[in-house]
Structure formats: structure tokens, C-alpha cells
Amino acid sequence: MGLQAVFFYLFAFVAVASAFMVISARNPVHSVLFLILVFFNAAGLFLLTGAEFLAMILLVVYIGAVAVLFLFVVMMLDIDFAELRSGVLQYAPVGILIGLIVAAELIVVIGGSVLTPQAARAITMPIPNPAVRTNTAVLGDVLYTHYVYFFQIAGLVLLVAMIGAIVLTLRHRQNIKRQDISRQVARSPETAVEVVKVKSGQGI
């Protein structure tokens, strides 16, 4: 029971409490803010286990980017929470079922490693000594050296998904004015101005 345990219980308690607040807060923006607090505490838990790279990536990617977009959407939408709440009992059985399945899976995974500790040693990529190689470097080894093809394929899938999303939502509107900076800069008096000699007493 050292300082580590104290911090573990602190992070864990705040994470669970704010996870509860995510689903019970009345205001959807407050829910998202509590969700951010959950991510933050999860990053703290990662730090405690010595996975500093994962902790920082969690902060950068989930809080710094994903949750910002989330907050954006929630702020823009005018969500009536009372209306959403009315269907709670209707969806409760499905939610409870999914929760039970996830809990069962977690118990199987954790129970497996508790019952047969030797299984942890049988994995293909054993965890090296953190004093010798930092876990950032180890993650790099796994992702970019041993499983580089899988990593590339995953990137390709994401690229295809991104292009798909752009193609589906891109709407090229006609008849609107667009700024073309290169054309503006390349304009010269000859192309822009027409000098007309107007005879007095006559129009153009």
C-alpha cells in the first residue's frame, strides 16, 4: 500500500464516478465534459502501469481531437434530454444485456490470466524490461517492424473510409463565387481593365 495505490484508487474512483455522471447528467454538454474527465483519469491509470506513451496518446487523440469534435456536435445540436429520457425503460433490457456480455468477457480474460499465469509468458511478443527499452520504442518495434503490413493495411482501410466519407458528402454547388488566389495574383492591367475611348455626346 504505497503512494501508487493511493493514486490508483484516486484515479479509479474519479473515473468511475464521472463515468456515472456521463449517463446521469441532465445537460448533454456536461456529459461530454465528464466523459473527458473519464479519459483523463484513464490516462492517469495508464501512467501508473508505466505505459506513458499510451497515456499521452490517449490525451492527444481522444481528448485533444475526438472529444473536441464530440463537444462540437453536442453543442450545436439542440437536444431535448427529457424526450430522450422517456425511452429509457424501453432500451434498458438491451443495455443491461450488452453490459452483462462485456462484463462476462472481461471476467473470462482476467480470470484466464489469473488461473494460468504461464499463459502471459506464451505470447509472441514478450514485454521487455522497461529499464532497457522504453515502451515507446517497444511499441514502435511491434507496429513498424514486426507487424508493418498489418499497420499499412489498417491505414489503407482508414484512407478508403475517409475518401468514401468525402465522396458521399461532397456537394459541388454551381453558381457560387470562389476565390482563386493564383488567378487574382496573375491578373494584369491588360486582362483586367478595358480602356474605351468614348466620343463626347455618345454613350458606349
Partner: peptide, 20 residues
């Protein structure tokens, strides 16, 4: 810390929350 630059990057990416 080992991941100093990531820490700086992570915390400064959180600064947007103060503004939002």
C-alpha cells in the same frame, strides 16, 4: 520524463477546452 514532448503536446491540445 521520457515522453516530455508528448506530454507538452497532449496538454497543449487540451488547452482548447478552456476556450470552448
Amino acid at each position: 520524463i521520457n515522453v516530455g514532448i508528448l506530454y507538452v503536446f497532449a496538454i497543449s491540445s487540451l488547452e482548447v477546452y478552456g476556450i470552448i
